[in-house]
Simulated assay, not measured.
Amino acid sequence: MSAGLFTAASLRLNPSNLYEIQDAASGIVQANLVEVARVRAPRGNFLSADRVQTPRLTLAVNAPDGTTLLYFDRAEHLKLSPVAPQTAFVATDGRILARVEFDSHSAFHGGGRTLGSTEQGHTLTPAARLLDANNQPLGDLVYEQPPDLSRPTLPDGFDARAIRWIAPDGTVLAQRRDAVLYLDNRVTGVWRPIIICSYLAVAFEFHLPFADRQASETTPELYPGYAGLHSAYDEFQRNFMDQYRPPVRTPLGRGIQRDQLEHLIKIFGPIAGVIIIIALIFKYIV
């Protein structure tokens, strides 16, 4: 593995190139992010709305010499979902190092709870949870939330709130301040790539280094288990949206969901408009 990436005391994304991870002190590039797959579930059909907001995105975390160290694999994001999707960190042999999730599926049931406060008066609030390969908690990511509950941003648009990585026993393993990740020098082994990748996950929560290239509907096999990696989470997302999206009562029938109704309007609205125009023309001609 890249010794620099996993031994550096502090790291940051290059503000001018989000695909580069730099040593924060020296500015030397320690790893590059290379997009290796962009995949999405099949699109909606004529009568069913397309539920995917952004497709699945998989990045290889490569050493400067091009050697792939591990994969950063972000699940699809559904429309109307207020939270960022699950991201998994996977070794090249398909071994799951950890996952990070931002929603009640994995972490903070009864959202809105606080975990204390800082000397500056900031509230400590849950940000995300780290899970192991069996979806068991490894630790929490905790925001230092300003007293006014705002979400301040840095000049580049990234979230400016400080984040702490906290182990189950309360030990602070790392912190992100002003977009820089600071790791405790006692953190070693697999914890290093887990913290680094979860730092990427919160940085890219909704601010992905995302070009306009079309996503494929054919799932590749980048590493063993790639195809089924997010299947449980994908099912959760769909069940969650079905359960919590309020139905809209319309003449089309009780239970039509809002996004599905908008989909039908987009389909039949222009058709109805054309019919009305033809009818008016026919009326005045005849």
Score class of each variant (00 low, 15 high):
Ser16Gly: 09
Gly269Gln: 07
Gly44Asp: 06
Asp159Lys: 01
Pro193Gln: 03
Ile276Val: 15
Pro15Asn: 02
Gly225Phe: 09
Leu18Asp: 08
Asp65Gln: 03
Ala49Leu: 08
Leu97Ile: 04
Ala75Thr: 00
Ile277His: 03
Leu33Ala: 07
Ala60Asn: 03
Pro137Val: 04
Ala279Val: 10
Leu11Val: 08
Cys197Leu: 09
Arg249His: 13
Ala232Trp: 04
Ile281Glu: 04
Arg12His: 10
Gly273Pro: 02
His77Glu: 08
Gly4Asp: 13
Arg40Asp: 03
Leu229Tyr: 10
Gly253Pro: 12
Arg40Leu: 03
Ala133Ile: 06
Val248Gln: 11
Leu124Gln: 10
Ile166Thr: 05
Leu80Val: 07
Phe240Ala: 11
Met241Trp: 05
Thr114Gly: 14
Pro15Gln: 02
Leu5Asp: 06
Thr68Pro: 09
Thr114Arg: 15
Glu235Asp: 15
Thr87Val: 14
Arg99Trp: 07
Ala91Arg: 13
Met1Ile: 07
Gly4Lys: 08
Thr7Cys: 01
Asp50Glu: 11
Ala227Cys: 11
Gln86Pro: 00
Arg56Glu: 12
Ala9Ile: 00
Gly111Met: 14
Asp73Phe: 00
Leu280Thr: 07
Thr153His: 02
Gln260Met: 11
Met1Pro: 13
Val83Ser: 13
Pro146Gly: 10
Pro126Thr: 04
Gln120Thr: 15
